[in-house]
Simulated assay, not measured.
Amino acid sequence: MFNSVTAIAFARLHLGFLDMNGGLGRRFGSLGLAIDGRATRLSIRRAAETQIEGAEAERASSHLDLLKERFGLTANYRLQIHEAIPAHAGLGSGTQLALAIAAALRRLEDVASDLSEDAVLLQRGARSGIGAGLFERGGLIVDGGRGERTMTPPVIARMDFPQDWRVILVLDPHLEGAHGQQERAAFAQLDDFDAAAAGEICRLVLIKALPALAERDIESFGDAIARIQDIVGAYFAPAQGGAPYVSPAVAEVMEELRRHGAKGTGQSSWGPTGFAFARDREEARRLSDLAQEKVTVSGLDIVICKGLNHGALVKGETFAAIK
């Protein structure tokens, strides 16, 4: 049995929904990618009294209480969140935090892993299964959306992401994307999604984006992602102030990157984080340098990341008591 467990869960990009029409009996479906550069790192150990420290402490406390009740645990714990993915930035912070706490507690108390159960218990994956799928496996995945019997949207495809390709993130620390009740209200105000648009997205994913990934064709991959983002961005614009990007400043930088040759530009989830792809580190650096003036003037952050082809890291530690 371990004395302490550390879990590291990585940020993700939500590259777009597949089918928000739902005419075939399933709705949503998502395309997502695990990335480095932003992560949630936490540790947990038994303690004389419960202590929760670090970012997202209130949310973490709620998760820990639910998990203790579910597993029938009565011990107290010291849970330290050493670093956290920025909240409500479109990078999957909530799901990664919840699943990291669950995975760490299970490892500490030798409870068998059950990712789907954790996702349902902690109310993650209401619309998208990519957060849980990427926590488990990394890479680029597609989930199959929600049907009548769905507990957690199933992963239906998973591919490695090319290790020489780079992801450029543009973050706006001054804004938050829709979440919670605001997100539910935003979905409620949107019109029905056009079935033909859903068909085009599914075709772009299956016949363009995934084959391009398999053949390491960043031009075709980027074209597919950019078109998906155009369709999805136009649909969500009424809930985002009439624009496909929540942050006007991020939108300007994304246009600058696109003009200089960045591939597959878009907004992750509800934003405000924007993303783009480059064929290698040198190209990513060139593009970032060209956009730096706009980034600086607007008070944004720009980060170069890689895709990650592995899931979260969970490690137990055993140590002798100090005498």
Score class of each variant (00 low, 15 high):
M1P: 15
V5Y: 05
V5M: 01
I8R: 10
R12K: 13
H14A: 08
D19M: 05
G22L: 03
G22R: 00
R26E: 09
L33W: 06
A34W: 01
G37R: 00
T40S: 11
L42Y: 07
I44H: 14
R45A: 13
E49P: 06
E53A: 08
G54S: 04
L66Y: 13
L66D: 15
L67N: 11
A75S: 14
Y77T: 12
H82M: 01
H82Y: 00
E83Q: 15
E83C: 13
A84V: 11
L91Q: 09
G92F: 02
G94D: 11
Q96N: 03
A102H: 10
A103K: 02
A104T: 13
L108K: 01
D110K: 01
V111H: 15
A112H: 07
D118P: 07
L121Y: 12
L122D: 13
S128T: 13
G131T: 05
G133V: 03
R137A: 06
G138M: 00
G139V: 04
G139L: 02
G144D: 11
G147F: 04
E148V: 08
T150A: 05
I156D: 07
I156G: 08
M159L: 10
D160M: 00
P162K: 02
D164H: 05
W165Y: 11
L169M: 03
L171I: 01
D172T: 07
H174D: 14
L175A: 10
E176W: 04
A178Y: 01
H179G: 02
R184I: 07
F187S: 13
F187T: 09
F187H: 06
A188T: 14
D192H: 15
A196F: 07
A197Q: 15
G199A: 05
E200G: 07
E200C: 00
R203D: 12
L206Y: 05
K208D: 15
A209E: 12
D217H: 10
E219A: 11
A224R: 05
I225T: 12
A234T: 14
P238W: 01
G241C: 07
Y245I: 03
Y245P: 08
S247D: 10
P248L: 02
V250T: 15
V250K: 11
A251L: 02
M254K: 02
R259N: 14
R259E: 14
T265Q: 07
T265V: 10
S268P: 00
W270L: 08
W270N: 14
G271P: 00
F275K: 03
R279C: 06
D280T: 07
R281W: 02
G299L: 05
I302P: 00
I304V: 15
G307Q: 06
L313Q: 12
I322Y: 12
K323M: 00
